[in-house]
Nucleic acid binder design. Structure first.
Lengths: 235, 235
DNA sequence: ATTTAATGTGTAAAATATACACACTATCTT
DNA sequence: AAGATAGTGTGTATATTTTACACATTAAAT
């Protein structure tokens, strides 16, 4: 492998950790790289930020090119600035994460030759990833586990209409912990941002469960008043 | 002002938001810039990251050069990647924050000609800052207000020995909210990481208060077991 | 009609959070 | 030295939140 790769003096890139939920498992979107370095390796979707685009925009563009996913709400979580994280020179990367409905989008597929394929992989039992992407992934995973306790990010992973059991399964998968059914339901419903639909689950061979959807407008109303009241260590 | 400034194609910098607590007020460390652009303006201590140093190290080095402060525990909080945030070209900046004891260090003073002076300024009533530093500051401030609710970062701002009233004043200043004395004390002491000293406050013209110190070892023991048990949405 | 598999529901006990007021003590003043 | 001043230190009752826990119900499949 004596290909001469270009050297980067000082560039920034973004890497995206996209989570999905499928078959009761939390998954992450990976690509198979089709270019050196790390050709053939699995990696997080990521690339160099252009000079004429903001880092936020670059993250969205790169994700689209590598996976076909668009209009994803991505949030920055950490910047990785070690000196030797990239073999071609100095590359500082800004990490983003997002949570999406796996079924809700068209199938993921790269739009450039840069990635050979894009696919979902369970977060447990990940292979070794290119560059320091294992570390980047770990950090994102930890972030969403913590965040799930105080923000309604779980709903981004579920279909629009879901049952309470599905919601609970998701929490259990992410938090890696069994929850009590009655207490879980009581608490979720007490927030007041779940809207009970007139519909029921279809196609199951047992009693069908009620469907709910997440009412973002209500959530924001509640969350705003909480923010105002927030900050308590003691009264 | 027709000085020709160098153009940056693509560099990264760090900016540090250093908080201190003095005279019952939360303060932030600013410098007065001695170079174009924004010569004479107030700014957060920050500069370009070198190619041979990690971003974390650069933040520490730059803070030292601009303010004389050393061995400060700094934490990254956000990266600012808009295209036009710097007049000389494309500069993406990584923001760090830290909380320190104002009295505990030698006086702050710049070690390079790049800053004319370094000084503490109350966080309320900040002047307009250079670049997008006002936004960077705001984001850091919001971060610590939230963080103070679930991590013992307040102690980094106080002298080693402090009274419960001082601690409460600090919480009240940061959270911008009155707290109940009895409940505050009960709760703080219930955590078990405050060590009551045999000493009392000196030099006050009223009943002297007991001094306490923060026992980091105990805190970590408690915090670790909480982390293990953590993640509850419902039991 | 029976089996199967999952849904949907309530209550009591424990833990935590909140609201609230006054006696104490060290220094300062006269 | 007596009183004024200013802030310290402390307890209890009530409300809210969290936890633990089990069984009748429903729809489909056999």
């Amino acid at each position: 492998m004596d290909i001469q790769l270009p050297h980067f003096d000082s560039v920034f890139s973004t890497d995206c950790v996209i989570f999905g939920f499928e078959a009761g498992e939390l998954k992450v979107l990976l690509i198979e790289r089709n270019e050196e370095p790390y050709q053939g390796w699995y990696a997080l979707p990521g690339n160099i930020v252009g000079l004429e685009e903001s880092v936020d925009n670059a993250a969205a563009r790169i994700l689209y090119e590598l996976t076909g996913l668009r209009d994803i709400h991505m949030r920055q979580f950490h910047t990785f600035g070690e000196v030797n994280r990239h073999p071609q020179g100095r590359v500082v990367t800004v990490g983003y994460f997002a949570l999406i409905r796996i079924g809700g989008q068209k199938e993921v597929a790269p739009l450039t030759h840069f990635a050979r394929k894009a696919f979902w992989h369970p977060v447990n039992d990940l292979p070794k990833l290119a560059f320091d992407h294992t570390e980047i992934f770990q950090r994102a995973f930890k972030k969403i586990r913590v965040k799930m306790n105080y923000e309604p990010i779980a709903f981004e992973l579920l279909p629009e209409k879901f049952t309470l059991t599905q919601l609970q399964n998701l929490y259990e998968a992410v938090l890696n912990k069994k929850l009590d059914k009655r207490n879980f339901r009581k608490k979720m419903l007490s927030y007041g941002f779940l809207k009970e639909l007139m519909e029921k689950q279809k196609g199951v061979s047992y009693r069908a469960a009620k469907l709910y959807k997440f009412d973002r407008r209500k959530y924001q109303k509640i969350f705003q008043t909480e923010l105002a009241a927030q900050g308590a260590v003691a009264s």
